[in-house]
């Protein structure tokens, strides 16, 4: 009966599971989180539309380029970015606004364990939603090429390895952005301001000197993507140039290791700051 007789690690694991049980339910089933699902699954809409309503079939190689563009410009930079703002900054700041954060802080749970539990909840939710959508986007994009061609692309061609790379990038985007927005939820009263700052930073990333480039999430994510950004043509060129600059990518293994390192550093820092966190919902 007394949990104190278990070793610390087993207690912490149980506590983390208990936190995830509470938080996953909040994240998955919150009405105010519906927009996150929309954001996650909106690439499927034009893809399926293209498949249903366009009778001309582009070359598959063309679609591979288009997919890469959608994924790197929209999905990583916009969808997952804002999805993580919604999911991860709510873990602390949202509970402050609901005035329900103190319930966790009145349980015999170390603040470090609380941060770990909440981070893992956010991670599971975001990986299920955004990783799941990434997996769905593949059939949505390529199905209309017919069974045979798709089979050839997936299993004889590079399709499967592309899919693994995109999925890895999506998961790492959740880890990277998630850690940052978790921390901003612990540190800032209004997490939208740091989110806007980070958005700026990530957008100008391509123009930064090599060293500063590496202090971002998007640089490493793009290094994991299997295809360099499609070369913009015509009018789109100027706008796209803002987003698509030659990135001289890092090797994927190094990119993965670096992202995990950045995220671990940020989460540990958030846990340290959480020890100083006070409940101050304002005066009633």
């Amino acid at each position: 009966m007394t949990p104190a007789t278990h070793s610390n690690w087993s207690l912490w694991m149980r506590q983390i599971l208990a936190i995830m049980r509470i938080d996953l339910r909040k994240t998955f089933f919150a009405k105010r989180g519906l927009w996150i699902y929309f954001l996650a699954f909106c690439p499927e809409i034009p893809m399926v539309g293209h498949w249903l309503f366009s009778n001309q079939t582009d070359a598959l190689a063309n679609d591979v380029q288009i997919f890469s563009g959608i994924f790197q410009v929209f999905y990583l930079r916009v969808a997952i970015f804002f999805g993580c703002v919604g999911i991860f900054s709510n873990l602390f700041r949202g509970e402050m606004m609901d005035k329900s954060l103190h319930y966790y802080m009145l349980a015999p749970v170390r603040r470090e364990v609380l941060v770990a539990g909440k981070f893992l909840s956010g991670l599971v939710a975001s990986v299920v939603i955004f990783g799941g959508s990434t997996l769905l986007q593949f059939p949505a994009m390529y199905w209309h090429h017919g069974r045979e061609l798709m089979h050839a692309y997936m299993f004889t061609g590079p399709g499967m390895s592309h899919l693994v790379s995109y999925f890895t990038a999506a998961v790492l985007a959740c880890i990277g952005y998630g850690s940052l927005f978790l921390a901003s939820g612990v540190l800032f009263r209004n997490p939208l301001i740091p989110a806007a700052g980070l958005l700026m930073w990530e957008s100008i990333n391509g123009f930064l000197p090599a060293l500063l480039k590496k202090l971002s999430v998007i640089y490493w994510l793009q290094s994991i993507c299997p295809i360099a950004m499609p070369n913009p043509r015509g009018n789109a060129r100027n706008i796209m140039a803002l987003l698509v600059v030659d990135i001289d990518p890092a090797p994927a293994g190094l990119a993965i290791a670096n992202l995990l390192l950045i995220a671990a550093f940020v989460v540990v820092w958030a846990a340290m700051r959480a020890r100083k966190l006070e409940i101050s919902y304002g005066t009633d």
């Binding site: 509470i22 009145l106 749970v109 603040r111």
Partner: peptide, 18 residues
């Protein structure tokens, strides 16, 4: 926290719930 909150229970004045 681990030792403290096994011993202490606190009902706050905040009328809010998850």
């Amino acid at each position: 926290a681990e030792q403290f909150f096994r011993m202490v229970g606190y009902s706050t004045q905040y009328d809010s719930f998850p």
